[in-house]
């Protein structure tokens, strides 16, 4: 396969992988914060679908992408709030409630988005960063992107700083590791978990808006296509570390792009296109296996109280 050696392809492939990985970065970083507080929200897929539709509708009516993204953020946070009320105040099972949110969100998005299925919005233009974008090969791949891509980097840095360098992040992690101790010291466990869960929802909403406003830019029923679930897997893959999540998301973006690239290349390969299309999902399973095989990897890195309900019985 000599085409892989062609340097002129490096820029578009790296660039496209980053774009494909960006919604995963944003959604997974949001979920990472949620999980660090001890809450497992499996509803990312549903929140992304709700965000995608809301963002699209808002952008279409207002004519502004920013308003679309903000609306998606609010919608994602609102759907996470519904989940948070269930699992935090009503102590419902987190797995079941997350599934409910995933099913409900996908259904609601399909319902609300039906009238907008044939509408196409103008694509969001790339925003080249002066000087940096002129670096040969990687410059245009990294620094000639749409603004939400830059946002995702800032988000990664911000989440890493927050969790490991700020006092509030320390408290959040304490709540995730041992809610009873955090409560005993005087922190409001439930309130902190509410914030963390809604932050996760807001990011999932933005990730959805990235799909419907920046990536395609249109809405269709199957738009999210399991990316919410892949984002959940990425948090495990990144062992709850922001930077590893970012790298993992770009690897996935690379897999997504590679299969599209091979399908579109017209190479005389005897590979059914369906096999290529299923590669990202098979790759998700493969990385989960690699990461989880050593039980200590998960035990040492995952928040101890993840998924367990907690009620301070004051």
């Amino acid at each position: 396969m000599t085409f892989a050696m062609d340097a002129s392809l490096v820029t578009p492939i790296v660039s496209a992988s980053i774009v494909a990985g960006t919604p995963l970065v944003i959604a997974a970083l949001g979920e990472l914060v949620t999980e660090k507080s001890g809450v497992l929200n499996l509803g990312v897929e549903g929140m992304m679908a709700i965000g995608a539709v809301t963002g699209f509708v808002a952008a279409q009516h207002s004519g502004s992408t920013i308003i679309g993204v903000l609306a998606a953020m609010v919608a994602g946070a609102a759907s996470a709030l519904a989940f948070a009320i269930l699992v935090l105040d009503l102590t419902a099972n987190q797995v079941a409630s997350g599934l409910a949110l995933a099913i409900f969100g996908v259904g609601l998005a399909a319902f609300a988005g039906k009238p907008y299925e044939s509408v196409v919005l103008p694509p969001v233009r790339a925003l080249p960063i002066p000087l940096l974008a002129d670096i040969p090969l990687l410059g245009p791949a990294l620094f000639d992107q749409q603004w939400l891509v830059y946002f995702s980097w800032a988000l990664c840095a911000g989440v890493a700083w927050f969790l490991y360098r700020s006092r509030a992040g320390l408290v959040l992690r304490a709540v995730g590791e041992s809610p009873a101790s955090a409560h005993a010291v005087g922190y409001r466990v439930i309130r902190i978990r509410y914030f963390a869960t809604m932050f996760g929802g807001a990011m999932a909403g933005i990730a959805g808006a990235f799909l419907s406003l920046f990536y395609t830019p249109m809405w269709s029923e199957g738009l999210v296509a399991g990316r919410g679930w892949i984002a959940l897997a990425l948090v495990v893959f990144g062992t709850w570390r922001p930077l590893r999540v970012l790298v993992g998301a770009y690897l996935f973006g690379g897999v997504l792009i590679a299969q599209l690239f091979v399908q579109g290349s017209g190479l005389p390969l005897e590979i059914p296109p369906q096999l290529l299309s299923s590669l990202p999902y098979i790759a998700t399973v493969a990385v989960l296996v690699i990461i989880s095989r050593n039980p200590n990897t998960i035990r040492l890195n995952s928040p101890v109280s993840l998924g367990q309900p907690y009620r301070p019985d004051a």
């Binding site: 269930l86 419902a92 409910a100 996908v106 609601l108």
Partner: peptide, 23 residues
């Protein structure tokens, strides 16, 4: 003249309310 996904919306609502009522 409503999208058939409204059925899914009802199904999701049902599960949500059930999980909430279980408290």
């Amino acid at each position: 003249n409503l999208p058939p996904a409204i059925g899914q919306v009802f199904q999701g609502m049902l599960l949500f309310f059930l999980l909430g009522a279980d408290v």
